[in-house]
């Protein structure tokens, strides 16, 4: 990839939409991205920095940035806000203990000036696990229905099986288009 590629990805382009994937650590952001890019997800380790991949969805080129979610490096999420066309927020649907924490982070993102009006796709990930909450339950817990300043959608998915991921991207592409 190299530093020059980073600069080229930074550039706003008419041909490529720039998506940002955020969410708590262990929510499955990198797995979602890898699955979307048809890559093996069995070797995924916690992301210390970021991963960038170009994926195609409904004929559109998506320039997707997956940013590490550990608490210590969340303050640096702002580094990547510039020129964002769409936000993907990933939630571990099986981890009910951290719903409060992820809700706080999400609300802070919604207040960011640089992300104002940016459409958001909430991925209710890990639906393959038995104790996963449904997308409807999560939308209620997070109070998504009170979002008025942008279009949003929640999609149940599983990075493990791939179920729901394409639908999520298609919704975003249609919204941006």
């Amino acid at each position: 990839m190299g530093l020059l590629t980073l600069l080229r990805k930074l550039k706003r382009s008419d041909k490529e939409a720039r998506l940002l994937i955020l969410g708590l650590d262990n929510s499955g952001k990198t797995s979602c991205l890898r699955k979307l890019a048809d890559e093996d997800i069995s070797q995924t380790t916690p992301t210390q920095g970021f991963n960038i991949k170009t994926v195609m969805s409904s004929g559109f080129k998506l320039n997707v940035w997956d940013i590490g979610g550990q608490k210590a490096i969340r303050p640096y999420w702002q580094n990547y806000f510039e020129s964002t066309d769409g936000l993907v927020y990933v939630i571990d649907s099986s981890d009910q203990k951290r719903l409060q924490e992820t809700s706080v982070e999400l609300n802070q993102l919604l207040e960011e000036e640089k992300l104002s009006g940016v459409p958001i796709m909430v991925l209710a990930n890990k639906q393959d696990l038995l104790n996963a909450l449904s997308a409807k339950q999560i939308a209620e817990e997070l109070g998504l229905h009170s979002i008025r300043d942008r279009t949003w959608q929640i999609q149940a998915c599983s990075a493990k099986t791939g179920e729901g991921l394409q639908q999520g991207m298609e919704w975003l592409v249609n919204t941006l288009g």
């Binding site: 530093l3 210390q48 920095g49 970021f50 590490g68 210590a72 490096i73 640096y76």
Partner: peptide, 10 residues
């Protein structure tokens, strides 16, 4: 040296 918290640039 692991003093940086995130990727290095130059």
């Amino acid at each position: 040296l692991s003093g940086h918290e995130l990727p290095l640039t130059n």
